[in-house]
Deep mutational scan, measured.
Amino acid sequence: MEVRTIKVFTTVDNINLHTQVVDMSMTYGQQFGPTYLDGADVTKIKPHNSHEGKTFYVLPNDDTLRVEAFEYYHTTDPSFLGRYMSALNHTKKWKYPQVNGLTSIKWADNNCYLATALLTLQQIELKFNPPALQDAYYRARAGEAANFCALILAYCNKTVGELGDVRETMSYLFQHANLDSCKRVLNVVCKTCGQQQTTLKGVEAVMYMGTLSYEQFKKGVQIPCTCGKQATKYLVQQESPFVMMSAPPAQYELKHGTFTCASEYTGNYQCGHYKHITSKETLYCIDGALLTKSSEYKGPITDVFYKENSYTTTIK
């Protein structure tokens, strides 16, 4: 009895394709271990004539594949690729409408935090270190965002349907971005203890939790000093293409032309909904596939993004 075979390709990165001759009487799992086709788990399936010449994702289970996976995804987590594939199996079914010149995501599976993050990423200057993220990001900007969303979920250790947080998501993504040249110098002034300067680099240099107003941050924000008295913390120097200011959701007025974009969060910790506000020729609110415009805006804002380049204080 002759062994019926077909020729397929296996890959971990969709760049390096490895030619395989597979036995049609055995499952993919018996031949390769966990195997995925377009995100779908085909591990328990036997090869079919229609699979001839198709590319299958496999887990990096030998040295060659491990090197290829690390170079593309910059992670050695053995569960990463499987999590990416199972997320992709959902995100490829989502709709990605162009809204006001940006790629958004039609609401499904509690994905409003991903839509808000995706919209924000198209408006701030950011370059990702893992080629996987950078490639998928370019495709997302062009309207094909399924891979990018699935990668975000995998890097953030999230599953489809789980509630997510924009600030946490951005923080994970910033860790995989090139923020080497970003720098922030802060000064804390206390009447009792004097003053202390701190220099922050990388992710810490672009994120701040405690106030939404970048102007206020430049002037000074009140913080408790270690001595128990009130101290003032203010920005001395900022070198970065953008800054992200966050605070627990509270009524906040966004003035046209003073910011790049913002995240609105309605609801409580267990259950809520994100919308995205962007400042173009007027203010726009993007909620999944829905767009509304207004000249002014007041609502429960939790993150505001500002364009920056270089700032030095005039406070002496």
Rank of each mutant, 00 (worst) to 15 (best):
V21K: 13
T10F: 03
N157D: 06
P224K: 14
T64G: 13
K191Q: 12
L119P: 07
K7M: 12
E239P: 00
K316D: 15
D109Q: 13
K298Y: 15
T292Y: 09
K218P: 01
Y208R: 13
K54H: 12
K93V: 09
G143F: 05
T260D: 15
G29P: 05
V185G: 01
I15K: 14
V236E: 07
V166P: 01
E264I: 06
N268D: 14
C182G: 03
N268Y: 08
P130C: 09
T19Q: 05
A289G: 09
A146W: 07
M85H: 15
C271N: 12
K280F: 11
K44P: 11
P249D: 08
A69S: 07
D23R: 10
N110D: 06
I277L: 06
F242E: 00
I277E: 08
F70A: 06
K183R: 13
L163E: 14
L118R: 01
C193P: 01
V166D: 00
Y138A: 13
T314R: 15
Q196L: 09
L37D: 14
H18M: 05
C285S: 09
F9R: 10
V160H: 10
K293Y: 07
L283R: 01
C271T: 02
L118Q: 03
E144M: 08
Q270A: 09
N100G: 15
L17V: 07
R139G: 06
M26D: 14
V236Y: 07
D63I: 04
T199W: 03
Y269F: 15
T258L: 07
F70R: 12
E264S: 09
N16T: 09
C271S: 11
Y96P: 12
F242S: 02
Q196H: 14
E253K: 11
G164K: 05
T292I: 04
Q270G: 07
K183M: 12
K7D: 13
T258N: 10
A154T: 11
D62W: 05
T55C: 10
F9D: 09
C271H: 14
T211C: 14
P131Y: 06
V206G: 00
Q30T: 15
Y306C: 00
Y306R: 01
E204P: 14
L186K: 04
F242M: 02
G202A: 03
P78T: 07
V3N: 14
D109G: 05
K183H: 05
N178P: 02
M245N: 07
A154N: 07
W107V: 01
T75C: 12
Y297S: 02
A136V: 02
I124W: 07
N61Y: 14
G267W: 15
L121F: 07
T159I: 09
K229R: 14
Q222R: 12
N89I: 14
D62Q: 09
T266H: 12
L153V: 09
L81K: 09
T313A: 15
L151T: 03
D180N: 15
G194K: 07
T11I: 00
F56T: 09
T27H: 10
T27V: 14
N16R: 05
A117G: 09
N14M: 14
T27M: 12
L59H: 12
I301K: 00
M170V: 05
K93M: 13
L37P: 05
S263Y: 03
C193S: 03
N14F: 15
A108Q: 09
A231L: 02
Q98S: 12
L186G: 01
V42H: 11
A150L: 03
A231W: 01
K298N: 09
E68G: 03
K275P: 03
P248C: 14
E215N: 07
Y57W: 14
Y36K: 02
E281D: 15
V206Y: 02
E239I: 11
T260N: 00
T55M: 08
T10G: 02
A142R: 13
I45K: 13
V221A: 03
Y172L: 12
W107K: 04
F80C: 03
Y269N: 15
A87V: 02
V203H: 11
T76H: 09
G101S: 06
K307E: 10
S104V: 08
Y274I: 04
H51L: 02
S86Y: 05
G101K: 07
H18E: 05
Y28E: 10
K92C: 12
T91H: 02
M207Q: 06
V221F: 11
T159E: 15
K255C: 10
F217C: 05
Y252C: 10
N49T: 11
T312R: 15
D77Y: 04
K7F: 08
K46D: 04
K316T: 14
Y84F: 13
E264P: 01
N129S: 08
G202W: 00
I45G: 12
A108P: 01
Y155G: 06
K95N: 14
A250W: 00
A69N: 03
F70S: 09
E204Q: 15
Q31V: 10
E2L: 11
M24Q: 11
A145G: 10
S25Y: 10
V22C: 13
L151E: 03
K92D: 02
Y137F: 12
A117T: 08
L254A: 00
Q134P: 05
A262E: 03
T314H: 15
Q230F: 15
Q98W: 11
M209G: 11
K46M: 15
Q98V: 14
T76R: 10
Y28R: 07
D135R: 08
T64H: 10
E264K: 01
G101D: 09
E52I: 11
E215D: 14
L186N: 02
L291F: 15
T120C: 15
T91K: 00
K44S: 12
L37V: 09
F217D: 04
R66S: 11
D180I: 05
G228M: 00
C193Y: 07
A140C: 09
G257W: 04
Y306W: 04
S240W: 01
H51R: 04
A87R: 03
Y284H: 10
V243A: 03
Y113T: 06
K275N: 04
V236D: 00
